[in-house]
Amino acid sequence: MTAPDHLDPYTERLRLRGRLEQPPDLVAGLLEDVARRCAEGGASLIGHVKAHARTAQGSFHCNLASIRSGAHSAGPLTVHPAPADSMDLDLAVLVYGLPRETVAALVEDAVEGLREHGVTEWVCAAHAPTDDHQPQE
């Protein structure tokens, strides 16, 4: 095996809206889809794909270090999952061998695929109106 190409970290802040029945499962599925698309798109090594999510009901995080192991969610909202109508999602995709523009396009495709799982609208948070999520006590 040869050394992989360099790491070009991709990060993004997203806001998802819709009927999000199981946010931890939704994000785990997204991370697995992103990793699979990166691998199929030519990534030489999956480093780490991870996310931190916030809804009005609480927060959680999710990460994936290999396609074989899959994505795992943890955090307060995974203990008592609750549906949400909006979610802020910080996403980091650290893979070798793909420029971040390519990763961005793959992520966009993967997020578009969430429309099959209740997401009706999504935007990069930098372009979203202020609507800070404060976890409920």
């Binding site: 970290p9 993004e12 802040r13 996310a51 931190h52 995080h61 910080d90 980091a92």
Partner: peptide, 12 residues
């Protein structure tokens, strides 16, 4: 990366 994930997990 530009956006930190782990620090948010630790703050949680």
């Amino acid at each position: 990366g530009d956006v930190g994930i782990d620090q948010q997990v630790m703050r949680d």
